[in-house]
């Protein structure tokens, strides 16, 4: 397990390098002179040239790439054109907002999705199975923006139960420490604020959880059905085990690998920033941060945003790979 982990970590180096390379070249393939864009249409030739020199844009591409690589390795992601702030400092609150939202959404999706899948498989062809799978079908088909708007209409406008947008009560903002508000409010012992943050989280996280939940439920069901036909399940029953133990111990562990794969992919997608959901619920997340940067042609921000999202995706996959090996002793890295 330890050697597997070490090897898997070593494998990260080429993957991360490749990713940095791709991000770098995509940005450089965009037509137009960055210095010209920074300085605007009225800039003189000399000014543009001077800025190019200052930014190192006259150097050959490979030199630029290595200095870029050196910068990201030291945590320097450059500065935003719009705000002139260091991106590495500016990005965290947005990232934290997305991480918090994705975490809660995935928690809902996993708890409900996995259990719905298990019970559907256990009582195959029952009314529960049929209704759960119908709901799952609706879940994957429903347009997220529509669901979000309907949630707001029903629970905020009509029933007035939950806030319709934002992360916190703007009249009583959370004092940020980690920028993960669930943690910050607990550290400060502000239970009233904690409840308020939770209330803000409910609608967007439910909207965001719908698709992953539906996919997880379907995958869990089919994987469980496959496993429950196997010989070792019959052995477990012949031992005199209760169905609950047979299902939740012997079957689930064997059925979980495809489910883990899907959970990993879906988490990666959510962390990429669900722009639609974040926009509808005015959630100040990474998706909206990058979207704003694209709108303003803020290249350093776009580049860093893509880099961060891709890195998170890679690390989620790493975690999933390590979980595979933790679940199944037969998985060895060759």
């Amino acid at each position: 397990m330890l050697t597997y982990t070490l090897r898997r970590l070593l494998m990260l180096i080429p993957v991360l390098l490749g990713m940095a390379l791709i991000v770098f070249f995509i940005i450089h393939a965009i037509p137009g002179d960055p210095a010209q864009i920074i300085l605007g249409q009225q800039a003189t030739e000399e000014n543009v040239e001077a800025l190019n020199e200052q930014l190192g844009l006259n150097e050959p591409l490979y030199v630029q790439f290595f200095s870029y690589l050196g910068n990201i390795l030291t945590g320097d992601l450059g500065e935003s054109f719009q705000t002139n702030n260091a991106i590495s400092e500016e990005v965290w609150p947005f990232l934290a907002a997305t991480i918090e939202l994705s975490f809660v959404a995935m928690l809902i999706a996993i708890v409900i999705g996995v259990n719905a899948g298990i019970i559907s498989a256990w009582f195959q062809n029952s009314w529960f199975d049929y209704s759960a799978m119908l709901l799952a079908l609706i879940g994957v088909s429903i347009p997220i923006f529509w669901l979000g708007l309907m949630e707001q209409w029903a629970f905020s406008v009509e029933l007035n139960w939950l806030p319709s947008s934002g992360r916190e009560n703007v009249r009583d903002p959370v004092e940020p420490i980690t920028h993960l508000f669930l943690i910050d409010t607990l550290i400060q012992g502000r239970l009233d604020q904690f409840v308020d943050v939770v209330r803000h989280l409910i609608l967007p996280s439910v909207a965001l959880a719908t698709i992953p939940m539906a996919i997880i439920a379907r995958i869990t069901r089919s994987s469980m059905l496959e496993v429950m036909k196997s010989d070792y399940i019959r052995t477990a029953r012949a031992k005199g085990m209760r169905m609950f133990g047979v299902v939740y111990k012997h079957s689930l562990k064997n059925a979980v690998i495809p489910v883990l794969t899907i959970i990993g992919l879906q988490t990666g997608l959510l962390l990429g920033g669900a722009i639609l959901t974040e926009t509808i619920f005015s959630w100040p997340g990474i998706g909206r941060y990058i979207y704003g940067a694209i709108d303003a042609r803020d290249y350093p921000v776009i580049q860093s945003g893509v880099l961060i999202v891709a890195t998170m995706f890679i690390f989620i996959n790493l975690i999933v790979d390590l979980l595979y090996a933790a679940v199944d002793p037969r998985i060895k890295y060759h």
Binding site: S230, D231, Y232, R234, T235, A236, A238, K239, G240, M241, H250, K253, N254, V327, D328, P329, R330
Partner: peptide, 18 residues
């Protein structure tokens, strides 16, 4: 498993691999 127990045909698949 206690008073009546059973052995199956396929030893390769009758034990839980995990």
């Amino acid at each position: 498993g206690n008073e009546i127990s059973m052995i199956f045909q396929e030893p390769m698949t009758s034990l839980n691999p995990l």
